[in-house]
């Protein structure tokens, strides 16, 4: 762009608030972000951990070993995997189907429909938790894996539909139409041609669904009272309430085990999450 004068020729030193100050602010905020994890990190590797922050005299993986061998610890991990895995599977299936239909077909009121789904998203489980409990009890869902899985899956359906529709929108319909001409029917093209192309989108939707179900606190708190069926989130909470009779090292190790998949998936799905939070939701 030759019309724009090169800005480099002007003395601009006075414009800078100074990167040093910026680094200072960022460092302070980084300490704020990381500081609260101090105890969790130190205690997890400390065989003599307690609730206080202390430098471990020896570092060991004993606590992690215990978390996996201790019946309580392992049970929590397995339960969380069942809930989050099941909810993710259901979420992916229903939002892939729904997202495809919303992306490929137009019908009267489709736009209003999309916006209503968005509106449903603003209703938090907090507002509906009491009826949700009564309903789950009537359906025999309380203290069952399948019931909790269905409820957890439902929480992310509105967001999932929007994400999936957005991804299917990026797969040009021409490809499908060419396949129809070749004699494939609509369902065949959807599965054989569109789904593989929208694969990354489906994966992103799955990650987001997993993160949501994996971290959920209120729903399992209300729907599960059987200690054998509790996920990690409730296990941590109950241990914290117990306070006096707690293996703090094991608890810290369990927290690390619990946060690692969430953080890892978050990093992988960040782009999709970002666009779904910001522009992606704007769709049409």
């Amino acid at each position: 762009m030759p019309a724009v004068a090169s800005p480099v020729t002007r003395p601009m030193a006075k414009l800078r608030p100074g990167p040093a100050a910026a680094y200072g602010v960022l460092a302070a905020l980084a300490l704020f972000a990381l500081g609260p994890f101090t105890w969790v990190l130190l205690a997890a590797f400390d065989p003599d951990a307690n609730i206080f922050v202390q430098a471990p005299r020896t570092l060991s993986l004993e606590n992690f070993q215990n978390a996996f061998t201790d019946a309580g610890g392992l049970g929590l991990i397995v339960n969380s995997l069942i809930y989050a895995g099941g909810a993710t599977l259901i979420l992916v299936v229903v939002t892939t189907l729904g997202g495809y239909a919303l992306s490929r077909y137009d019908f009267r009121g489709r736009r209003t429909f999309m916006l209503s789904i968005l509106l449903v998203r603003v209703i938090p489980p907090t507002a509906t938790i009491v009826p949700l409990f009564v309903l789950s009890k009537d359906l025999g869902f309380v203290d069952t894996y399948h019931g909790v899985i269905l409820v957890l899956a439902s929480l992310n359906v509105p967001l999932g539909l929007w994400i999936m529709k957005g991804f299917f929108d990026t797969v040009p319909i021409d490809i499908e139409e060419a396949a129809w001409v070749d004699g494939a029917n609509r369902l065949q093209t959807a599965f054989r041609i569109v789904l593989p192309l929208a694969g990354p989108g489906v994966a992103a939707g799955a990650l987001i669904g997993f993160i949501g179900a994996w971290g959920e606190f209120l729903v399992p708190l209300v729907l599960i009272s059987d200690p054998d069926k509790m996920p990690i989130s409730i296990g941590l909470f109950r241990a914290w309430l117990n306070y006096t009779n707690v293996d703090w090292g094991l608890l810290a190790a369990l927290s690390i085990i619990y946060m690692v998949p969430a953080v890892a998936f978050y990093v992988v799905a960040r782009r999709a999450l970002q666009s779904s939070l910001a522009g992606g939701l704007a769709g049409q």
Binding site: P36, F37, W214, I234, Y258, M259, A262
Partner: peptide
């Protein structure tokens, strides 16, 4: 950016437990 993302990336219960531990009311609390 990666550091700043951490507080949101961890599950709610870990975030709460982390704060519960460092806000410990004794002298040895972080």
């Amino acid at each position: 950016a990666a550091i700043f993302l951490l507080p949101l990336a961890v599950p709610e219960a870990v975030a709460a437990l982390a704060w519960a531990s460092i806000a410990n009311g004794t002298e040895q609390g972080f």
